[in-house]
Amino acid sequence: MFLALQDVASAPWFSLDLTGTPDISGAILYCFFTLAVFSFLYKDNPFYKLAEHVFVGLGTAYFTLQYYDEGILQPVYEYLFGEGGVIEKMETSGIVEIGGYSVDPVMALVFRGIAGLLAVMLVMRLFAPNSWMPRLPLAVMVGVYAALKMTGETQSKLVLFVGNMFKDPITNSNLLSWSELTAQPSWRIENWEAFFVFSKIVFFVGLLSALTHFIFTYRRTKVLAGISKVGVITLMITFGAMFGFTVLGRIALLIERVDEMKSYTASAYSLGPAPAAGQDPGVLSLMLTPPILISVIIIAVLALGIGIKKDGRANA
């Protein structure tokens, strides 16, 4: 996994214990599917197509299982019929707590029963795509989501947010200084007062002009167009920052992929004969590790494919 295992002495052929040393069969699958996806960079090919379809099949199955277990089995079956569930509470004349509020078990059963019924209506979409029944659970979902989003977002991203917006840059005079733990003093911006005043002006001008650009979209007068232009500049720099971070993220993923492959080039994963104790495994051992062996096979097959195609064209 995350730990690079360059110095592994020996690896099992197959092991379900995922905290120990990764197994060789798993390493082969891991490297094959990684390299099969990378082969797309050359062109679309059977290895990539296989990887793509396995990904869709496996991904769909994995997510389905998670939703089935945590979204259906737990809140419906376990909630009603499980140990300490509503039915058991009904028999023992207990109380069911919903959101911390005490409710009679019969009421709880009725409520969740309605949910079950509506869920069945949703399934009706499979058999009668134009039926009105799936609209009811859909309506519940839309209502719940809309209200939850509206209340939560308005409070946190409008009311509290706007309040803090004017507070943060003014009260927090240390926003630009790096921590005391900074190893390189060059990363610090000295608490130079005039610079901070300038920074805050940049912030407020940028914020107000960008807001103006978003909100006052009608009849652009000269003044409004000027302010809007400053807003656009602020937004473009913001998008530039987002672009820079996106590059950072994508390259980080690539580096991790290559680093993971490197961890499987340890001699413990070599499919060749094990070297004698204390002896250098040698180049052959390295060539027979999953990442290199599979790379060679994929490249060879793709090259062979080009050769066959060229011959075919020549003969045609």
């Binding site: 977002e153 991203k157 409008l158 926003l175 630009l176 912030f203 960008a210 650009h213 602020t234 913001t238």
Partner: peptide, 19 residues
């Protein structure tokens, strides 16, 4: 400077608009 003051201003404007 860019992230705190310029990106900060742009992001806040986007968030307020979206909200």
């Amino acid at each position: 400077f860019t992230m705190t003051y310029i990106n900060g201003a742009g992001q806040k404007a986007i968030i307020i608009g979206a909200t």
